[in-house]
Design a protein around this nucleic acid. Sequence first.
DNA 1: AGGCTTACCTAGAGGTCCTAGGCAAATTAT
DNA 2: ATAATTTGCCTAGGACCTCTAGGTAAGCCT
Lengths: 188, 188
Amino acid sequence: MARAGLTADRLTQAAAELADEVGFENVTVSALARHFGVKDASLYSHIRNAQDLRVRLAVLALAELADQVAEAIAGRSGKGALVAFANAYRAYAREHPGRYTATQMALDPDTAATSAAGKHAEMTRAILRGYDLWEPDQTDAVRLLHSTFHGYVSLERAGAFHSHPRGVEASWTRALDALDSVLRAWPD
Amino acid sequence: MARAGLTADRLTQAAAELADEVGFENVTVSALARHFGVKDASLYSHIRNAQDLRVRLAVLALAELADQVAEAIAGRSGKGALVAFANAYRAYAREHPGRYTATQMALDPDTAATSAAGKHAEMTRAILRGYDLWEPDQTDAVRLLHSTFHGYVSLERAGAFHSHPRGVEASWTRALDALDSVLRAWPD
DNA sequence: AGGCTTACCTAGAGGTCCTAGGCAAATTAT
DNA sequence: ATAATTTGCCTAGGACCTCTAGGTAAGCCT
């Protein structure tokens, strides 16, 4: 009997692909076991439980997203960096719907700190170097940007914008313009 | 044997309370049946399936949220309306976490149109009457506002803001200030 | 009272999560 | 190369959730 050669990492990777195919909520221990031609119980040597699997998936997705965004903003500053960040963020959510949903999991503070969750804020801060913002305005701005990006992507995915014919792309561009001008003229 | 007197509406109402107590993802047909002291199978005369129950819950929550927001902005305009809208929206999400999660379900276009999902955009438009915005800028602004509100609330709930000591309230106020100034000076 | 509708039931199949305990394959030690 | 150890995967089985089919009885109508 040849072994499948499972590891927590391979399981997490497969879970990520599965998430994008069938949706995050359908990432199940059973489905994953089926994918590897193995019994459900066999996975529990590698992951603690279903929740643990989902957390690992979330951490993976956060790291991937952070990488994509980091690559996008490299060498840019000011509005260029802002737009690059936003587009990379949105593109990741579009291309990896299941993974993106995973990034929205509530992680306990420990896991969040260890993972790339904090890297987000750090990179958003990098963008803000092109604007004239200092603490605590910087934190406020980070939160505003992150909220807007996530909110837009999230609503777009939920189909909240289908009701109106106005192009979703055009509204997105306008939102970025608006954020840029907010940052340039941050209210004192 | 006295009957429990179940109807789809009573089930939906109980599901909403259950959602706020134990989380939307734990709203299960079984749990609901237990709550009424009834067998699981009995609920299937009132709801088609578990998904149907969740959709009804989502529709209920959307209607409640729309009502709360409508009440909040009544008699206000301009920034007052903007702030009232935003605070009512956020308050609903805080007080009814399970219901709020339900509002994020992807509804099929038919259901969404029938439900109060469209009422949102309509009310957001009402806010914009205090600013000098016309189509298609109005739609862009509606999307931006909705995105920011939802994004902020969503990230706040996910604990994304715990990493930094800066008060979440202060950042929220600043975000509203920023949105107000964006609307007043919408880029042309 | 008889008949109709329907609220709720039992029975049961199938799926997911997870634990306990066992065997055998891969790895390490001798 | 063989023995000892580790560990990857197994079977068995319990608990919970979803949902269907078909039955009984409670409440409504005439």
